[in-house]
Amino acid sequence: MKILRLENLTKNFGGLIAVNNVNIELQEGEILGIIGPNGAGKTTLTNLVAGTLEVSSGKIFFQDSDITNLPAHLRVRIGISRTFQTVRPLKDFTALENVVVGALFAKGESLSQARESAYKVCRFLKLERVDSYPDKLTVFELKKLEIARAIVCNPKVLFLDEVMAGLNFEEMKQMIQIVKSLKDEGMTICVIEHVMSVISELTDRVVVLDRGEVIAEGPYLEVSKNKRVIAAYLGEED
């Protein structure tokens, strides 16, 4: 069953077309990878789905209802969460309080319930220094914090925007386990990633974007042999 459908989605910034007529369907329970060279429109796509950017044309359907014009703060309440490519912790809050914010407003919990949920999520992610302020946390902890704040909202669909960037090999292995366990929890996940080994290990299917357009779609092994995909990454031969 499809849970999220992007229909002819287009976003332009003035003359620059960042996302061009994109059609993507997300099946419930799958992990979809979105790959593509820098500037392909991956993060723009995330922003359009999360509602932090307005679409220029096209439609977004979530569980068959049209959410194209739904404000961002309501999208997270119906079940679409995202992490930010560059971590954006709230600096005046401790790690735990950062997570509490999500539980308070996305789920509408009371303060004590929210603290409970936040603890639970942090334990699940093995984020230990919950009382530290973000400036004292490591990159890995900050990445976990991004995920914690997103999943405490109980998302049905989760967009992970380059959560592996900046992690070492060992941390990456742990992060892959985390993403897999989120899938086991029943979340539908969209991974935007540059690290191909991660994509091949995690995803059921990938979509390749180049200059805002979908140029290939399918299982990773198949797509990675596609000539247009190779050309997009390495440049074309004359």
Partner: peptide, 25 residues
């Protein structure tokens, strides 16, 4: 001391994150 603090401090820190956490700014 209430959820108001969480809302307004989030807005002060980062409006994009506040929105993404479900806060009606």
């Amino acid at each position: 001391r209430t959820r108001i603090k969480y809302a307004i401090s989030s807005i002060r820190n980062d409006e994009l994150v506040a929105k993404s956490c479900g806060i009606n700014i």
